[in-house]
Design a protein around this nucleic acid. Structure first.
Length: 350
DNA sequence: AATCCGGGGAG
DNA sequence: CTCCCAGGATT
C-alpha cells in the first residue's frame, strides 16, 4: 500500500479549531488556561493514556479521579501494593494494563528518580508504554514533534487519504504522512486530531461541514467518508462453557480466590469454577454440599463468549484452603472483574 | 503478522 | 444484535 505524495494535514486549521473546541477533560489543561511553556504533569497524562487504551473517555473519567485521589504522584502509586491497584482497576478491563501500570510506576521511581523520561524512545522502554502512549506523553508533556497515531487517527487518516486497504496494512505510510504534518505545539495537535476523530470524524457519521481539514479530505471529495476505513474480515467468536461455584459459610461470608498472575483476568479475584471448554462438562462440585443451580451467566470477552452455570451452597469454612472468606459488605472492595460480579449477583450476592 | 487480552456505550 | 474505543505484550 502506497500513498502517492500524501498532502500534509492543515495543522494550522486544526490548531485553530482546537483552540475553540477543545474538550474539557480531567487530565488536560486547555490551551487557553495554560501559560506559555507550561505542560501537563506527565504522571497524570501517563495514567490517563494507559486507562484510555481501548477504553472510552466516559468510562475512564471516574477511574482517573479515583486513582489520582488515592495516589496523587508516581511515588504514591509505586508505594502502593499491587493488590490495591488491581482492586481499583477492577471493572476497567485489560488487567495487564494495571500490572504494567504498577511496574512502570516502580520503574520510574527506582530507575528514573521519579521523573518520567522526556523522549518517546525512552518512554517506550517502560512496561505498558508502546508506540502510541510513548508518542502521546512525549508530545503532550515534553513538546516532542512526533506523530501520535491512535484508533481515531487511523480512521481520520484513512478517510483523509482514502486508504483502500485495512489500516493495519498502511500503518507505516499513515504514520509518515502524519509525521510530515506535525507542527509546533505537537501536543495540542495530537489532542486536536483525536478530538476531531471523536467528535467530527466519528465512526458512523462524519460532520464534514464542521471539519477543519475537510478541504484536503479525499474521501469527502469521493462522496462518502464513512466507507473508510476498510474493515478486515471479522473473526467469529467461539463459545466456551463451564461451571462456577459460589460457596457461603454459616456467617454468610463468600469464598474467593486469586487467579493466576498472567493470562485472562490475570491476578484478579474469582470464585472457584471448572475449566471452560467448547462443550459443557458434567458438573463436578469442589466439595459435597446441598448445591442449587442459580441460573446462567453470559459474558462476552474479546475473543470468545462465555456461558457459566452458577451453583451455590452453604459449606463449612474449614474444608477449603488457598483462598479467603469475604463478607458481603466487603465484596465491593475486592478485585473482582465484571464477570465474577455477575456470577455473585446470579447467586443473590452484591 | 496474528493472537491474546475486558468492558461498556452508541446506534 | 454490531461496532469499536486515546493499544501493548506475546508468540
Amino acid at each position: 500500500m502506497q500513498l502517492s505524495h500524501p498532502a500534509p494535514v492543515d495543522a494550522s486549521a486544526v490548531l485553530a479549531w482546537y483552540d475553540r473546541h477543545a474538550r474539557d477533560l480531567p487530565w488536560r489543561i486547555a490551551p487557553a488556561d495554560r501559560v506559555a511553556g507550561q505542560f501537563p504533569d506527565p504522571y497524570r497524562v501517563w495514567l490517563s493514556e494507559v486507562m484510555l487504551q481501548q477504553t472510552t473517555v466516559a468510562t475512564v473519567k471516574s477511574y482517573f479521579t479515583r486513582f489520582t485521589s488515592l495516589w496523587p504522584t508516581v511515588f504514591d502509586l509505586a508505594a502502593a501494593p499491587l493488590d490495591s491497584v488491581l482492586k481499583e482497576w477492577a471493572g476497567l478491563g485489560y488487567y495487564a494494563r494495571a500490572r504494567n501500570l504498577h511496574a512502570c510506576a516502580r520503574a520510574v521511581v527506582n530507575d528514573h528518580a521519579g521523573k518520567f523520561p522526556a523522549t518517546s524512545a525512552a518512554l517506550q522502554t517502560l512496561p505498558g508504554i508502546g508506540s502510541y502512549t510513548s508518542a502521546a506523553i512525549a508530545a503532550i508533556c515534553f513538546d516532542e514533534p512526533i506523530a501520535v497515531l491512535d484508533g481515531n487517527l487511523d480512521r481520520v487518516l484513512a478517510r483523509y487519504y482514502a486508504v483502500a486497504v485495512p489500516v493495519r496494512e498502511a500503518k507505516d505510510e499513515l504514520r509518515a504522512a502524519l509525521q510530515a504534518s506535525v507542527p509546533a505545539r505537537a501536543g495540542d495537535f495530537a489532542q486536536a486530531m483525536m478530538d476531531l476523530g471523536a467528535t467530527i470524524c466519528a465512526p458512523r457519521a462524519a460532520a464534514c461541514l464542521l471539519c477543519p481539514i475537510q478541504p484536503g479530505c479525499i474521501a469527502t471529495r469521493q462522496g462518502d467518508p464513512t466507507r473508510y476505513p476498510i474493515k478486515p474480515a471479522k473473526a467469529d467468536r467461539p463459545v466456551r462453557k463451564g461451571h462456577a461455584f459460589v460457596m457461603v459459610d454459616h456467617a454468610g461470608d463468600v469464598y474467593l480466590q486469586s487467579r493466576p498472575a498472567k493470562g485472562l483476568l490475570g491476578g484478579m479475584t474469582e470464585v472457584p469454577g471448572s475449566d471452560w471448554s467448547a462443550e459443557l462438562a458434567d458438573v463436578s462440585y469442589p466439595l459435597a454440599a446441598d448445591w442449587s443451580h442459580r441460573g446462567q451467566v453470559v459474558h462476552v470477552f474479546t475473543h470468545f463468549r462465555l456461558e457459566l452455570e452458577i451453583w451455590s451452597a452453604q459449606v463449612p469454612p474449614e474444608t477449603l484452603a488457598g483462598g479467603w472468606w469475604s463478607e458481603p459488605a466487603a465484596l465491593r472492595g475486592e478485585a473482582l472483574p465484571t464477570l465474577f460480579r455477575k456470577v455473585l449477583a446470579a447467586a443473590g450476592l452484591e
